[in-house]
């Protein structure tokens, strides 16, 4: 793995929700990528049977302090496309909640998962979509796609996941960093720009937000071999956390140009976060082969704890970390 180049990362370096959310926000604020970089955190809800993750300390559904993004839904495709068309006419672009298993440009061989897709044009029988998401996959990896697709293809992309597994619903709920209302399962979802200030951002329940404590929780969570089958669905949440933190540090390195030990600390934090999904996927594979490796998980999180605290100190010194609201 490599700590990346010196230039600022683009939207493609983010996750399946934030990559195209960044494109949407960039339409309204030129500093969208910096705004997202500064929002990055990892908080874990600890008072529920399964964890929820919050990746942003700033509510990213806040478009411009005067309006916000909110989920909208329709039960059938015609009604959904009609409403999406209206939103597109009014706003010039619209985020829809697509299904990774039915997007024709996706090579994903994984189970279906919700995905934010940007729709920014329409002409006779066709829609223009922009998808900056990239991710390594056994099938060759997800690559950015931008182009015109048929209305039928867009309709297929919007196919609801039924039933929607609980961990995927939690991702929809917390996609912006703070919980928002999500329409019922089985309906087609998109995001509409509501002409009101965003609701107050709060995390109800008991959440761990201190990163050292979060890493302690995650180390315990992932190093229990007995619990692996139920925990495997959360591997993608950890991949997203690693993407977001890597994005934050790469953005910091490009914008603030730290030198000497500060540069080393930031680069080390990037590598430590990149190691996390590698280690967890290796542990998952080892578990499946009957060779559980909790010690690999522990060693990886121990290194992450040290590297993150050093990197975080540099980020804080440069004003690159938002305090929790």
């Amino acid at each position: 793995m490599s700590p990346g180049g010196a230039g600022p990362p683009g939207a493609e370096a983010l996750s399946c929700y934030t990559a195209n959310l960044a494109l949407y926000l960039a339409h309204h604020r030129p500093d969208a990528l910096a705004h997202i970089a500064r929002s990055v955190r990892l908080a874990v809800r600890t008072d529920t049977p399964v964890p929820a993750f919050s990746h942003h300390a700033t509510a990213l559904n806040d478009v411009d302090r005067l309006s916000h993004l909110a989920y909208a839904a329709a039960v059938d495709e015609d009604a959904a496309l009609s409403a999406i068309s209206s939103e597109l006419r009014e706003q010039g672009l619209v985020l829809v909640v697509s299904n990774t298993s039915t997007m024709e440009w996706s090579v994903s061989d994984k189970a279906a998962a919700p995905h934010f897709l940007l729709v920014d044009g329409r002409r006779r029988g066709e829609w223009h979509v922009d998808d900056r998401f990239t991710a390594p996959r056994p099938g060759g990896g997800e690559r950015p796609y931008s182009g015109w697709i048929s209305q039928a293809a867009l309709g297929r992309s919007l196919t609801p996941i039924v039933p929607l597994p609980h961990h995927l619903r939690l991702r929809n709920v917390h996609a912006f960093g703070f919980p928002v209302p999500v329409p019922p399962d089985g309906q087609i979802h998109w995001l509409t720009r509501s002409p009101q200030p965003p609701p107050a951002a709060a995390l109800p329940g008991r959440w761990m937000t201190d990163i050292a404590a979060v890493i302690d929780v995650l180390e315990a969570f992932w190093s229990d071999p007995q619990a692996w089958p139920e925990r495997t669905p959360f591997l993608d949440d950890m991949w997203a956390a690693a993407q977001h933190h890597t994005f934050r540090y790469r953005h910091l390195r490009a914008e603030a140009s730290p030198t000497g030990s500060d540069w080393a600390a930031v680069s080390d934090a990037i590598l430590a976060w990149q190691d996390v999904p590698m280690a967890l996927n290796f542990a998952a594979s080892s578990q499946l082969r009957g060779r559980p490796r909790p010690s690999v998980v522990k060693a990886t999180f121990e290194r992450l704890r040290e590297a993150e605290l050093r990197g975080r100190a540099v980020a804080a010194a440069h004003g690159h970390i938002h305090p929790d609201p």
């Binding site: 430590a272 190691d275 996390v276 290796f282 060779r291 690999v296 290194r303």
Partner: peptide, 21 residues
């Protein structure tokens, strides 16, 4: 890494992803 463990019958080090390039 998984194949190498299996083919060679080895157990890769715990710090496999902890700073290893």
């Amino acid at each position: 890494l998984v194949r190498l463990e299996d083919e060679l019958g080895v157990t890769l080090p715990d710090d496999l992803f902890a700073g290893q390039s």
